[in-house]
Design a protein around this nucleic acid. Structure first.
Lengths: 295, 295
DNA sequence: TTCAAAAATGTCATATAGTGGAATTTTCAT
DNA sequence: ATGAAAATTCCACTATATGACATTTTTGAA
């Protein structure tokens, strides 16, 4: 049994509320005591009411319960991303094995998808990685899963976001469209909206193509309009300045890609200037690097 | 009984997983079926494991369960803030009565605090509001509660954030310091970090004083340094551009407040320029208004 | 349509979630 | 320190969450 009760007791004491007062109107005092001591599990319905009375939502409670760490799903994505950014192949392999183990244990394909996500990271980071074969087979598993799911939540968006760069162009456009459409109901849930915004940005970056091909003919006019349109439909709020800067950068890159070099360069330089004004030098440098590569 | 089971069934089906597969290794098939049909409540421990297998955290699940609406606590703050911004006195009164009713029902003082928060909004919005008397007594309740709580979470920070402007200066500085210190363990929990950042910003605005007193002697040099220091300690990440713009604005206002008029004006104008570059015109206009008032 | 396999539900036994109240411990004013 | 009040734990008892297995319903290939 997971001992949520002890955490509840801690929270209750921190807020200076007595056991009796918390229990009042929800459950018996003796049961609450028993639960808090870890002698009994609790029903989801009761727990909901207790937390509501404590003015705390589940998310925050579980954050405390996990010793001030985010939930497992988020930890997984965070760990994967960190290992990727640090080019830590060993850590990536370890994470992959962890997911494969869970796959064998539970037989749920999402764990396999997770392993694949890590594998994508590995294949980018690890130069010795033999890409052929494995990849062809496995991305099918991934796209099969993503096509099958009827509503895309945080998990699906994050999974797709991490793997999109290694998929075929047609597949990316289909899946990005799907992602946008099938996550519609989450529009006013920040975490998911951030994820779908990120997917759209990555799709546009994908459409622009690798930096060394910026001189070639641009084949995705129509799609570019489509995905830019989605971004506008989401209507990045006034306060999300970061996304607005990124949008400025991408619009600039797009201008350059289709031949309007000066116009595009001006936009990107404006983005860089803003970041510098705000002392976000690392981000500014990254964009500067990117600009140098594409012109 | 709250029928979480039906939501779980919806989610499971959306992800294309069979009842048996989901139950496997966690609970019996028959029980899961019963739960999904709403014939039985479920234990918190079991639910945790089921959601983990579905790659979904509690927060997202409950969001779906509440018909794609945020949890009650967040809804309360959102509703209060909306009514406040819309100067909707009627709606504010309604919200207040709702909280008072819960207070009578449960006898938990936090509901009283919520009512007080609304009352603060009311007193600002409603010109007919008789401030004296009521206010003196009630803010005690609020500060008593806030001083008593050992760890400040999302609720306490939001509550304080909404009421700070009507408290005594000494009280504000004490409480803001407390807020910063007692929310330390949440530093890597975005929602709470955002809230504490907001508290610090509001504290600084409070220290600067009302716009019509910008010509008077500035009495809070030391405190200003202290709270600016806290903001730096939180180290607003490179990506949080919105907060960085706001910081720029406040630093400008501070410069003006202590006599460096040109320097301060330049900073604020820079902030305005950035917002205009990013088409955040409404925010830009607000700052422009503020600048006009303080110089 | 038919049939077999898979998925979901129903039945019943039992472990455990949850209650009420008495007994014990803690708190705190004097 | 001391006693009263409040908070917590213990214990006996009830309601219900959960498992094992039988039965019904759905699915989907031929």
């Amino acid at each position: 049994m997971v001992e949520y009760g002890k955490t509840l007791r801690i929270v209750r004491k921190q807020k200076g509320i007595t056991l009796k007062r918390l229990a009042d109107g929800i459950c018996s005092v003796s049961f609450l005591s028993k639960f808090e001591r870890g002698d009994s599990d609790i029903t989801l319905g009761l727990m909901t009411r207790l937390l509501e009375k404590l003015m705390m939502n589940f998310d925050e409670f579980l954050f405390i319960h996990h010793d001030f760490q985010p939930d497992k799903l988020e930890q997984f994505f965070k760990a994967a991303n960190t290992a990727y950014l640090n080019r830590d192949v060993k850590q990536l392999k370890q994470l992959k094995n962890g997911q494969l183990k869970k796959w064998k244990q539970y037989g749920v394909e999402t764990y396999q998808c997770n392993a694949l996500l890590i594998e994508v990271y590995e294949s980018i980071v690890d130069k010795d990685y033999i890409k052929k074969g494995v990849q062809e087979i496995d991305t099918h598993l991934l796209s099969d899963y993503l096509f099958r799911v009827e509503v895309w939540g945080y998990y699906e968006l994050m999974l797709y976001n991490g793997t999109l760069l290694l998929l075929e162009p047609d597949m990316v456009m289909l899946l990005s469209r799907t992602a946008y459409e099938k996550s519609a109901r989450f529009r006013n849930y920040d975490k998911v909206t951030d994820a779908i915004t990120s997917v759209l940005f990555n799709t546009i970056i994908f459409l622009l193509g690798p930096v060394n091909r910026f001189h070639e003919e641009f084949a995705y006019q129509k799609e570019m309009t489509e995905f830019m349109g989605y971004l506008e439909a989401i209507a990045i709020p006034e306060g999300n300045l970061t996304e607005r800067v990124l949008l400025l950068e991408l619009k600039g890159a797009y201008s350059i890609r289709v031949g309007y070099k000066e116009e595009g360069t001006a936009k990107i330089k404006q983005a860089i200037q803003i970041l510098q004004d705000l002392n976000s030098t690392r981000m500014a440098n990254n964009i500067e690097q990117y600009l140098l590569q594409i012109i």
